[in-house]
């Protein structure tokens, strides 16, 4: 009996060792829906920017598409640690807090921020002295205006809705928000438009971007995924997918 158990344990050890050596499929955790990054098509299958990009990454590493596991956001890191999946590919911002718990790949996208202003106000992002600029309190946009844009008056809001009401009411010269949020907020308003270029520098404020996350010990998988992402960014596959979902550049 004892001998059989040892033999069994040995067999298990061999089989798991062979699995670690070459990865057959990558199980990927994602919080859906979060359009346009991940959402369900009418037929029920997942699609979106991250789903398409993730499948390309999995094909590079294993030759097969990813096995997607839908997981609510608040449990997404615990799910990774308890081996429900091996990678998180779900718009997770790389930051120091999370680095304590997970291993990040190289960043694969970052949404820029932008000024949005009334069309007739002719707001110029370079001439901000004395201008009233609305931001959401304690966001990276707040930090950028506070630290980098000298002479502007920062007006801080608790919610984006209040900020929009004041912009439309004529109380603000401009607002500074995440570009997709701003574009969505003002898509039906003819009197308001983006002012100036999209902004994603400096790194000290905006961070390095969004990365895939792994268990700390899976360094091998992390390196393969980072390499695959690098290749897709260079060979044009990334750009093709990006242009399907965005009118602006989110590549980093």
């Amino acid at each position: 009996m004892k001998k059989t158990l040892i033999a069994l344990a040995g067999l298990l050890a061999i089989s798991s060792a062979s699995q670690a050596g070459d990865i057959k499929t990558i199980r990927v955790g994602v919080d859906s829906p979060y359009p346009p990054f991940e959402f369900k098509k009418p037929d029920g299958s997942l699609t979106g920017f991250e789903i398409e990009l993730g499948n390309e990454v999995c094909k590079e590493v294993t030759g097969k598409e990813c096995e997607w596991v839908v997981q609510a956001w608040d449990g997404i890191i615990p799910g990774l640690q308890s081996r429900k999946y091996d990678m998180i590919f779900s718009s997770m911002t790389i930051n120091e807090d999370r680095k304590k718990h997970v291993l990040f790949s190289e960043p694969y996208y970052m949404t820029p921020s932008a000024f949005f202003a009334p069309v007739k106000g002719k707001f110029d992002a370079k001439v901000t002295k004395g201008k009233r600029i609305g931001v959401q309190r304690a966001t990276v946009q707040d930090k950028y205006i506070t630290d980098m844009v000298k002479g502007a008056e920062v007006v801080r809001y608790t919610s984006a809705d209040d900020m929009r009401v004041d912009l439309e009411g004529g109380r603000l010269d401009a607002i500074f928000v995440d570009a997709p949020v701003g574009l969505d907020m003002l898509k039906d308003k003819k009197d308001f438009a983006q002012a100036g270029e999209m902004i994603k520098d400096p790194v000290s404020i905006f961070g390095v971007g969004i990365g895939a996350a792994f268990r700390k010990r899976d360094k091998d998988l992390e390196q393969k995924v980072s390499a695959a992402l690098e290749k897709l960014k260079k060979n044009g596959t990334y750009d093709v997918i990006m242009k399907k979902y965005f009118t602006f550049d989110i590549k980093v």
């Binding site: 209040d162 009401v165 004041d166 439309e168 009411g169 004529g170 109380r171």
Partner: peptide, 22 residues
């Protein structure tokens, strides 16, 4: 504060000096 901004044309009237800021 928010209600007055809905009055038509208040942004161009003299009252706006008072209601522009909080």
């Amino acid at each position: 504060y928010y209600g007055v901004t809905l009055i038509d044309g208040i942004q161009d009237s003299v009252w706006w000096v008072i209601f522009e800021h909080a």
